[in-house]
Amino acid sequence: MMSEKSRQNKKQSIEEKLIEDLNSILDATVNYQTERRLWVNIEPDLIVETCTKAYELGFEHLSTISVTDWLDKGKLEVTYHLWSYTHNHLLTIKTKIDRKKPKISSLNSIWGGNAETCERECHELFGVDFKGNPNLTPLFLEDWEGPPPFLKDFDWREYVKKEMYDQKNPREKVYFEVRK
């Protein structure tokens, strides 16, 4: 019987080996975040290359793509969550792109329709242009004419008051009295 301590030691050594492998193959510094979660920061040009390497290493499942808006730094952070069924680890690949011209290569060469749908969502909510994605049509926001709504400098309450409510309407007058 393996004792609890030796089992933990074994688990740790497997994890360390995985981080070493990733460091050498991805050519970047992989950080141990919490148990079974690894983070890596890379340059935006290397995204397809890094993801291909990670895919070959066993990170086969693209869980989701998310975007964070860093307004004060002028950057959009695109985050890719990859899960590996062989290693049981979540690899989070983070990359920062320019906020004014958000462009990044599409991953549909690796994950096909799965990546395509995630990218469509990020495109409509944050305005990120995924180069190489053939279908960047709106997913939820049909007929939307305003700016990408999830950007932090878009005040949607002001937008809604201006576009959708009428101050002269007695029923809707109350919405204009709501403070920020």
């Binding site: 939820f140 939307w144 709504p149 949607w156 959708m164 809707e172 919405y175 709501v178």
Partner: peptide
């Protein structure tokens, strides 16, 4: 959701 950008008012 009265101040949401995507609901019908």
């Amino acid at each position: 959701y009265w101040d949401s950008y995507n609901t019908v008012k």
